[in-house]
Each structure stands twice: as C-alpha cells, then as structure tokens.
Design a protein around this nucleic acid. Structure first.
Lengths: 121, 121
DNA sequence: AGGTTGATAAACCATTAGGTTGATTAGCAC
DNA sequence: GTGCTAATCAACCTAATGGTTTATCAACCT
C-alpha cells in the first residue's frame, strides 16, 4: 500500500492525525520518547490497540522507533509534521485572493440575470 | 455527530484531508469557488460521490457554500486550514527540544529521568 | 532451564468510509 | 403546465478502521 510516493504519505499522515487517540500520542511524544506501555497507560484501551495506533503513526512516518533491549521507544519525527504544514500552506497562502473571489461572487448576484434576488426561505 | 467541539473539528478536518480526491478539491477551490458539477468534472467518479466529498469537507468546515439560484457554489474556508497548522505547530515547534531529547536518550540512557531505564547498547 | 515483561500477531466483531445506481427535490426556461 | 439541469437523498455493496481477546515472540533475570 505504502508505495512511498507523496500522495500516499499525505493520505497516511492526515489519516493518522484524524484520530484523537493518535493526536494525544503525538502530543505525549512531543515531550520525549516513550515506550508503548508508557504511551498506553493514560488510555482506557488495551496496549494492543495502542500498539496498532503506533503502527499507523509509524507507517505515516510521523514517528520512528529505536531499539533498547526488548523495549522499542517511539519518538516523534517532526520533519513529517512539517510536510503537512507545507501542504496546507500552499492553500492557506491564497487567503486574500480567496476572499476577493468570494466577494466577487457574492456581489455579482445582482448582475446575474436580474431575477436572482428572490429569496424564499 | 459534530458537537462542534475542538476535538471533533480536528477529527473531521484531518480525516477530510486524508483522501486524495478531497485534497484535489481543496486545491481546485484555492483557485476560486466552484459548483459540484464543475468540481466533479476532472474526476472519474460520479457526481454523487463528489457531492459526498463536499459534504465531508463542509462538515469539517473546510469549505462553505452559498446559494446562487439552483447552484450552490463551494468556496474554501482558509481559517479552518489555519486551525490545522496551528495544531501541528504546537509540536513542530518543539523540534529542537525533541532532537535534544532523542540525543540524550541515545547517548546517555541513564540520564533520562524515566522509570525502569535499563541501558544495554 | 523456567519465569516475567514488553511488544506484536492473529482471528474476530461492529462500525464506518467510499463508491455505485436509482429516485427525488429545487429552480430555471420555455 | 412540461422539460431540463444542479444537486441531494436513499439503499446497497465492499473494504477498511478501531476495538477486543487469545496466543506468540523476544529479551531479560534469576
């Protein structure tokens, strides 16, 4: 599935962040690496479920893992978070142009065939 | 459903952006408002499917709609995109601290104030 | 060796997402 | 009125998600 192309990475990353549990995991990891058990502790779900969430984040490359004996600490990969803001910023930056377009549409109604002024609720 | 709280909005927004079709819709809308039919044209899926995608984006408040007779132009809501970057930036900005934490863990395992820190590397 | 701990794998269940097709509403033009 | 168009609704299907429970694996420690 993950062919590694840009689209797949964006799919995976945005999907990963669409779950509140995973967002809380990200939040927790921003304060330092942690193991699955440590991450699972504050949640009311099983460790297996948390492990799956970590895998989702890992596939999206939002986190990476290292080895420390039988522990496998998870740590954040801020570079991938930046890739997301980079994508969003493409469209965030057209903000003023967008507002101008909207304004043009709203004001062209009056000059748009005349009878479009009848508003029935 | 959408109770309107912050978490739900983030869920909906990130989920909305996790689909490549919807990202392309966002991209298209960044160049100005468009109707469902106009948006559906470049896609190989039905207009009903596109209409559903628009509803997903609308529920996430990433787009809004106005009325123009029987047309319902969709336009981008950059403010919501900014809310997403705002969330990500919370953790993107800890970047240097994060690298320092990782570095500390990798190089001096005992120095990490965690519980049960057994170094073996 | 046996035993415990951290973490995953496998099988399964309920819910949802993305897509289809067919029918329906709302508004304009005639 | 009839007809056309934009858009949605409704029912349905398939595949994926998020969760569980049970079992397994790997590494440590006596």
């Amino acid at each position: 599935m993950d062919t590694g192309n840009d689209d797949d990475l964006l799919n995976a990353a945005f999907l990963a962040l669409s779950d509140p549990v995973r967002r809380r995991l990200i939040s927790r990891l921003s304060r330092g690496p942690a193991t699955v058990n440590e991450l699972a502790e504050p949640f009311a779900i099983s460790k297996q479920a948390v492990s799956k969430h970590i895998q989702v984040l890992e596939q999206a490359q939002l986190v990476t893992r290292s080895r420390d004996a039988q522990r496998r600490p998870v740590h954040l990969n801020p570079a991938r978070l930046e890739a997301l803001t980079a994508w969003i910023d493409q469209y965030r930056l057209v903000r003023e142009a967008q507002f101008r377009s909207l304004d043009a549409v709203l004001h062209s109604n009056a000059a748009h065939g005349g009878s479009s002024q009848k508003d029935r609720k």
